[in-house]
Computed example of a mutant assay.
Amino acid sequence: MAIYGVGSNWDGAEVCTDFFKEEKFILGWNEDCAEDLYTFISALKVGDILYIKANRPGSRRIRVKGIGIVKSNLISCISSGELGFGSTSDWKSLFVRVIWIDQKEFYIDIPQDQGRLTNVRAATIYEEHLPFVQKIIVEHIANKHN
């Protein structure tokens, strides 16, 4: 199991409520632009944690819009027929199923003495490696079940 930060802003349109309603995460880039990112999401596993985030380059504050757990990976969604009979080149049809367990927005302020060299948080998707952030995400999940 791993924790990933994911984006939900598609050319200025916020789509996290669509993700919540449809129990999905969709990358939001067309395959021609983002073959590397589709390879990345094809490796997501059931049980991985996704948190929807917003972060400006260089900012030490992460706006968390929601937290979920992967319920079905991309390959399972393809092989089960959930993606329908459309072309896999239709990037809006490629998704992973997610149980969005926390849909309330909150902020994480990263202390100045931690993660100073991290440069990934403005990316579309990344694996979260900073223990400070991991702990807060896991605590939010745990608090939802207490």
Rank of each mutant, 00 (worst) to 15 (best):
G12R: 07
G12D: 06
A13W: 03
V15A: 03
V15P: 01
C16L: 03
C16S: 12
D18E: 12
F19W: 12
E22V: 02
E23L: 03
F25D: 00
L27K: 07
G28K: 13
W29L: 15
N30W: 12
N30K: 14
E31Y: 15
C33R: 07
C33W: 02
A34C: 12
E35P: 05
D36L: 08
L37S: 11
L37N: 08
L37M: 14
L37H: 08
T39D: 10
F40E: 03
I41V: 15
S42V: 00
S42L: 00
V46N: 10
D48T: 05
I49S: 01
L50P: 06
Y51C: 03
I52H: 03
N55L: 00
N55Y: 00
R56M: 08
G58S: 04
S59Q: 03
S59R: 02
S59T: 03
R61M: 09
R61I: 14
V64M: 03
K65T: 01
K65Q: 10
G66Y: 08
I67K: 05
G68F: 03
I69H: 00
V70C: 14
K71V: 08
S72D: 13
S72Q: 14
N73Q: 11
L74K: 09
I75M: 07
S76T: 13
I78Y: 05
S80D: 05
S80E: 04
G81A: 05
G84T: 11
G84W: 09
F85G: 08
G86T: 07
S87P: 02
S87T: 11
T88R: 07
T88P: 09
W91R: 08
W91F: 15
S93H: 06
S93R: 14
V96E: 02
R97N: 11
I99A: 13
I99V: 10
W100F: 04
W100V: 05
I101G: 09
I101A: 13
D102I: 14
K104Q: 15
E105I: 10
F106P: 09
F106E: 10
Y107T: 01
I108L: 01
D109H: 07
G115Y: 12
